[in-house]
């Protein structure tokens, strides 16, 4: 029982971090960024390259992955999303294509086989009869700190409030003096950064492989659909619902069912509450 609670809390914190970058883009830019999972994967490999192949300290690898993730987000906004702005389907198709292209690129550079990331911080801690690696504990604490930081940034700063404003009414934001394009750029940059950090943690939680982008993408989509848009609190709550659901189904039923309940939940919510449990009515 304690084991389930601890594993659930740890996994859910990570899921919240995975989802929040995706939620941001969807809320502010109304773009379903299907390449988001691929950022997560590429960031894992960037970390692997710098920290494990070149031997830089883990924190440097993590930061480099974050910075390069932000650059990928910015490039994607400027080269794909902005030119195709009017056409949502085209944006979604091209983000999916980008994901597949990135997967091929990673196979070319690093090969097809899965890789194990060395723990960012080695060691384990015993809580009751549960064993928790420092690695996972650090990932969860870092996720929480980043989420709290993001929450405060959005609520307390001019740029953060402007991001919220754009997500609710672009014309209203524009006539308030907010440069929509600039806010979109900032959002894509932050999202890329968060996705990359989440990617390193996720890769060290599971393992690194060229197809690992699918699972986090589905988790992110599930959290947005169930949590509704524009709500960090909603993201956090739903991340815990999904995280616990997975841990419980793995522990009590079968590890094979890991993702199945998540998908069932997506479909269920789409059918009964298209705006998500915490969603807002469009005005």
């Amino acid at each position: 029982m304690l084991e389930i609670i601890i594993q659930g809390v740890l996994l859910s914190g990570l899921y919240a971090l995975i989802a929040v970058g995706f939620t941001l883009i969807f809320s502010v830019g109304r773009v379903l960024n299907l390449a988001y999972g691929a950022y997560i994967m590429v960031a894992g490999y960037i970390y692997f390259y710098f920290s494990q192949l070149l031997g830089l300290p883990p924190i440097a690898g993590l930061l480099l992955a974050g910075i390069l993730g932000a650059c990928m987000g910015l490039l994607k906004y400027n080269l794909i999303v902005k030119p195709l702005k009017a056409d949502h389907i085209a944006v979604e198709i091209s983000t999916l294509i980008l994901a597949v292209v990135l997967q091929s690129a990673v196979i070319l550079c690093f090969g097809n086989s899965a890789k194990i990331l060395l723990p960012i911080i080695p060691g384990v801690i015993h809580i009751g009869n549960a064993t928790v690696t420092y690695n996972v504990l650090v990932a969860t604490i870092a996720s929480w700190l980043i989420l709290i930081g993001l929450y405060l940034f959005i609520k307390r700063t001019h740029v953060g409030r402007a991001m919220m404003a754009v997500s609710m009414d672009t014309k209203g934001a524009s006539i308030s003096g907010v440069d929509i394009d600039k806010i979109n750029m900032i959002t894509w940059g932050i999202s890329g950064f968060l996705g990359a950090i989440a990617g390193v943690f996720f890769a060290s939680y599971t393992q690194l492989s060229p197809t690992m982008w699918v699972a986090p993408l589905i988790i992110a989509i599930a959290i947005v659909i169930v949590g509704g848009i524009g709500s960090i609190i909603g993201t956090l709550v739903v991340a815990h619902i999904i995280g616990f659901m997975e841990i419980i189904s793995v522990a009590l039923i079968s590890p094979q069912l890991r993702g199945v309940f998540t998908m069932l939940l997506i479909i269920l919510v789409l059918v009964i509450r298209p705006k998500g449990l915490f969603g807002r009515e469009e005005l």
């Binding site: 001019h158 009414d169 209203g172 308030s176 003096g177 524009g230 807002r280």
Partner: peptide, 21 residues
């Protein structure tokens, strides 16, 4: 503007603060 284009899920005060951008 005509339909106000306010930020519906922000407080009155935060709406004003966005106006101060």
């Amino acid at each position: 503007p005509e339909r106000f284009n306010l930020f519906p899920y922000m407080s009155v005060y935060d709406n004003l603060l966005v106006g101060a951008f």
